[in-house]
């Protein structure tokens, strides 16, 4: 009985991992084509763009902020880099420029949030619309097809590892070290718990918030280039709703929307893998495409429910502890 309860508690604590395993298991039962190594590698490649995006989002969420503009930022990045490459600019110039555009988005967000003290939700809602419009203006609502050289990056391998996965790995490790191993990272958590307290403790809150939105913009740009290298074209709906996918991945991974709680490794990574595994699995079993968002929504609901259960049981434990 005691062991059973301990197992249940362990499963609740690692609900996302358990759910990921459950999803892998059920799809593999439904289709023999799902749980094969080539498809698993596929899931990894497909999820790399989303995971990178969600990593940036995690930084923002940890400060109790939110960035709704990343999808639009991705779109602008895609359009700008697409235009540049088509007009003959070499990739060596186009890529840094694209990254700069992403960070510029972050900087604009940070300016309004830090200097003008407008809440992140409103600021990034504005840049979400502005960015989408800007991208449509630049692209004249036409799809931009990218040259073969761009696509080659997407399918190339280094030491046998697909390029998108490699980029994800680098971003993942860097972000993890920044969050857990630097003063900046730990202060991000402090601000997320209570920014007033953080200010009182002498933490440079404004500088850190700027940094966080820059990181989010940069991750959006990197994530977008990775996606571009796989798709080869920028359509007018490119990056659309990706901000919600990124938020979902981070929240699935255990990051709190109230700030101060969560991590990238394993949290956000597992969250992104879970979302992608479900999408991939639904494709493999030939489910109706309109069903995808429904299933994703249900999974988010389930996780949020588990999260609230987890919160409640922690509170109950605390109350009985003080009562004893």
């Amino acid at each position: 009985m005691k062991i059973l309860r301990a197992i249940v508690r362990l499963m609740i604590r690692h609900a996302t991992v358990v759910l990921l395993l459950a999803v892998l298991l059920s799809f593999s039962l439904l289709s023999p084509k799902f749980l094969v190594s080539s498809n698993l590698v596929n899931i990894l490649i497909q999820s790399s763009s989303l995971a990178i995006l969600a990593i940036g989002m995690t930084f923002v969420l940890l400060t109790a902020g939110i960035d709704l503009s990343v999808g639009s930022a991705m779109f602008v990045v895609g359009v700008v880099s697409g235009k540049l490459v088509i007009s003959g600019l070499s990739l060596w110039w186009a890529i840094p420029l694209a990254l700069a555009v992403g960070m510029l988005f972050g900087l604009v967000n940070a300016f309004f949030i830090v200097r003008l003290r407008i809440i992140p939700f409103i600021v990034t809602l504005a840049t979400f619309y502005a960015g989408r419009g800007l991208g449509l203006l630049i692209s004249e609502t036409r799809a931009i097809n990218l040259p073969e050289s761009f696509l080659q990056i997407g399918s190339s391998r280094l030491l046998g590892i697909p390029m998108p996965v490699l980029i994800l790995l680098v971003v993942l490790l860097l972000a993890h070290f920044v969050l857990s191993g630097t003063q900046f990272g730990r202060q991000v958590y402090a601000i997320g718990h209570n920014s007033d307290k953080a200010r009182k403790a002498g933490i440079p809150v404004d500088r850190i918030l700027i940094g966080v939105y820059l990181i989010c913009g940069l991750c959006a740009a990197i994530g977008r280039l990775v996606a571009l290298a796989q798709l080869g074209a920028v359509s007018p709906t490119f990056g659309y709703q990706n901000e919600f996918m990124a938020i979902a991945a981070a929240v699935l991974g255990g990051t709190s929307l109230f700030g101060g709680k969560g991590n990238i490794l394993p949290g956000t990574l597992v969250g992104a893998l879970l979302i992608q595994a479900i999408q991939n699995g639904l494709v493999v079993i030939n489910a109706d495409p309109y069903l995808y968002p429904v299933v994703t929504g249900m999974v988010i609901f389930l996780i949020v429910m588990i999260d609230s259960l987890r919160h409640k049981s922690a509170q109950k434990a605390l109350r009985t502890k003080t009562a004893a």
Partner: peptide, 26 residues
């Protein structure tokens, strides 16, 4: 900050730092 460790709270604004490949790590 209850979400951080005791040690992190003690040094929240002046973590002991070591340099690693140009990075300032705790």
């Amino acid at each position: 900050f209850p979400n951080l460790s005791i040690a992190e709270n003690l040094f929240i604004n002046q973590f002991p730092i070591k340099k690693l490949a140009g990075f300032s790590l705790i």
